[in-house]
Design a protein around this nucleic acid. Structure first.
Lengths: 199, 199
DNA sequence: CGTATTTCTTGAATATAATTCAAAATACAC
DNA sequence: GTGTATTTTGAATTATATTCAAGAAATACG
């Protein structure tokens, strides 16, 4: 399916091409998963030949690595926007970000989980994820420091637990039928509010 | 005098072979990850030809699916053993199980994370994981019901949060340098004890 | 314009790994 | 011993990632 995109002057031709490839990879992963996605699949979605993908990227892994990085950057920017809000509102924003909206559908969580699995044995993905985690936890520490009270030994512990809860609940939403996005949202929100003394 | 050796018919020849294959697959996954492991690698470790692996299993995926299932069964049996203990001891046992000992090294956590990633687009793995999760959460509900007090809306919520915490903390231990197995053990233990009213 | 140069694009060739299969080797029953 | 069932293998087959030489298109420049 060829996509006719308007030529933006801000983006070089190469960047446009790269974005088409990312978009196609994302579509393919949501449809059949990264492992089962072939370069031919991605190429067709991006309207080019498979061999031409390797003009822009070193290989299949490289496409995922760079795409994962771009998603990571986008997410960090989004989360950074919350910083100006009151702690209580910030917590609400985070709950919404991780358990509501288009970035947190079941399929998107599946994409995330598959990336984590791939990251286990891919240095580039692993480092990207580690930096993303670090950034998220730093934000959480800030939130807890600005909060009324923390029922934890330290704000660092509270951040660690909050982040683990987010990862674990999203995983549960994907795999387990006893919990859905709304319930996970409630559990996450209530837990963080409670930990931060927002009674 | 006993002249006849007992026929160790506990395991058929085929089952022995299958176990050799599982063992080899596990070694390979710890060494280079499932995706990068080839059938030739597994075959060499199990002392047979690659094509012969497919005499016992339908394919590479099938080996992982059946091995993951056997690990799941083994883990469930181990966790079921804790049931006779007092709630407080049971919580300690769970913390040790998930964050201490040979089943919870960094490499084993990596194996788990890679399986979860693969499970996203593999029906067999996904169902195995879903059933395992369900079983674990049921045990947690039992623990909370037998505990002094639960600072949650329900024991189901407490179980959901505990399990999410376990998954999220193990993931953090694998990817993030700001937390190790000992700290995760402490955080998990303290959180569950606190949630269950074991002050 | 015309053409030189750079960038883009492809199909054909190659490499690697999973899977199939016919047949050989081995174990086993009688 | 001989026939049958099981185990095992190496040699094809298939699928996919990757390389590469060369053609097409865009762009720079006289």
């Amino acid at each position: 399916m060829p996509t006719t995109t308007l030529p933006k002057r801000r983006e070089s031709r190469g960047d446009q091409r790269r974005h088409q490839i990312f978009k196609s990879l994302h579509d393919c992963i949501l449809a059949k998963g990264y492992v089962k996605t072939t370069l031919a699949d991605v190429a067709e979605g991006a309207g080019m030949s498979a061999s031409h993908l390797l003009y822009y990227f070193k290989g299949k892994e490289d496409i995922l690595e760079q795409y994962f990085d771009s998603v990571s950057v986008r997410f960090m920017a989004r989360i950074a926007e919350f910083s100006s809000q009151e702690p209580r509102v910030q917590i609400q924003s985070l709950a919404d970000f991780w358990f509501k909206g288009e970035t947190s559908t079941i399929k998107e969580i599946g994409f995330m989980l598959e990336c984590f699995g791939a990251a286990v044995n891919d240095d580039v993905l692993r480092i990207t994820k580690a930096e993303f985690d670090e950034s998220c936890k730093a934000h959480l520490v800030d939130i807890f420091q600005a909060s009324p009270a923390v029922f934890m030994e330290s704000t660092k512990d509270a951040a660690e637990i909050s982040y683990a809860l987010m990862i674990g609940l999203r995983s549960a939403v994907y795999f387990d039928s006893d919990i859905n996005l709304d319930e996970a949202h409630r559990l996450f929100l209530n837990s963080i509010l409670s930990m931060s003394g927002h009674t």
